[in-house]
């Protein structure tokens, strides 16, 4: 038995090493998966990220007057491209109006740019689903000038612009309340949102 003991202890060591190895593997798996919650995999890289927001003047959807993105410098912006015919837009709209309302006092404004849509139908859509507060602006985009400048691929698409007027993030497809909030919180805290 005595000559067995070094072998036995090596075996025991091996067993412990295995246990620790497996535990570390499981632990890191859980940590990595956990870090993905609340981060939308559709928060995509775009060549526009890091660039200043395009200086375009767009007519408001209702009433007279126009809006220039660069006029809103100092505000954190969410620019959402949408259309009344786009079903995912319908799904994400309540999240956008809720965020507009909750972040009004923190210097956040939203701009909804209608994309290849008739303004009457867009108005009907908003009458049905809600307009959001006075920090939610809706503009028309005849000829899709803004959409081209932003490099819109298909609606809905959402861009985040920080207070210095720099585009810092882009989401393709419908946004959720969680993604909007976590991204805004990062921008307001002065961090770059993790794509």
């Amino acid at each position: 038995m005595i000559e067995d003991s070094p072998r036995k202890s090596r075996k025991q060591l091996l067993r412990w090493a295995t246990v620790v190895g497996v535990a570390v593997a499981i632990g890191s798996l859980v940590l990595v998966f956990n870090s993905r919650f609340g981060v939308d995999p559709r928060l995509v890289d775009s060549p526009l990220v890091g660039e200043p927001v395009p200086a375009i003047e767009l007519e408001l959807l209702t009433g007279d007057g126009s809006l220039d993105f660069t006029d809103l410098k100092g505000q954190v912006l969410i620019v959402n491209f949408w259309a009344s015919w786009c079903f995912p837009c319908r799904g994400e709209h309540p999240a956008l109006t809720a965020v507009a309302n909750d972040y009004r006092d923190r210097g956040v404004s939203l701009v909804g740019v209608i994309y290849q849509d008739r303004s009457a139908e867009a108005v009907d859509f908003l009458d049905e689903l809600g307009w959001g507060g006075d920090n939610y602006h809706y503009v028309q985009d005849p000829g899709s000038r803004a959409a081209v400048e932003f490099g819109v691929f298909g609606v809905p698409e959402t861009y985040f612009v920080d207070a210095d007027g720099i585009i810092v993030g882009k989401v393709q497809g419908a946004v959720t309340s969680g993604v909007l909030r976590s991204t805004l919180n990062q921008i307001l805290a002065g961090e770059l949102p993790a794509p």
Partner: peptide, 12 residues
């Protein structure tokens, strides 16, 4: 869980 983007994934 929606943690990856794929044809199959559901939303988060």
């Amino acid at each position: 869980s929606g943690i990856i983007a794929s044809v199959h994934s559901f939303t988060q």
